[in-house]
């Protein structure tokens, strides 16, 4: 299954990656071989197999609705590259 350059460009856009032409060729080939590998699963008959939605057979893991203090603001914001008025400062996107 060979991915087209357009498909690579689409995935790159969704991932916000900027690729040059050589990279697009390279990733088209690499991603294709990964998909081919995964495609081997299609050789199995899964007719009577329920789709798996979670790897562990556990259900209903709940928390009670009780407030705990949050993390101090200085601490939570300490990794932010840019701050203003105790808020994350980010490039405008509109």
């Amino acid at each position: 299954m060979a991915l087209t350059i357009q498909e690579v460009e689409h995935v790159a856009l969704l991932a916000r990656l900027k690729l040059d032409d050589d990279e697009k060729e390279l990733f088209a080939a690499q991603l294709s071989s990964i998909l081919d590998y995964a495609n081997r699963l299609n050789e199995l008959s899964t007719e009577d197999v329920e789709p798996l939605v979670h790897i562990l057979p556990i259900y209903n893991v709940f928390r009670e609705d009780e407030v705990q203090p949050g993390t101090p603001r200085e601490e939570i914001l300490s990794n932010a590259p840019l701050l203003e008025d105790n808020q994350y400062k980010v490039p405008k996107i509109i």
Binding site: E66, Q68, G70, R73, I76, L77, D85, N86, Q87
Partner: peptide, 16 residues
């Protein structure tokens, strides 16, 4: 378990 109270100071009801 962070609070949902409305109108608090920015980034005071947050955790990792």
């Amino acid at each position: 378990s962070c609070s949902t109270a409305f109108g608090s100071e920015p980034n005071t009801q947050v955790c990792p």
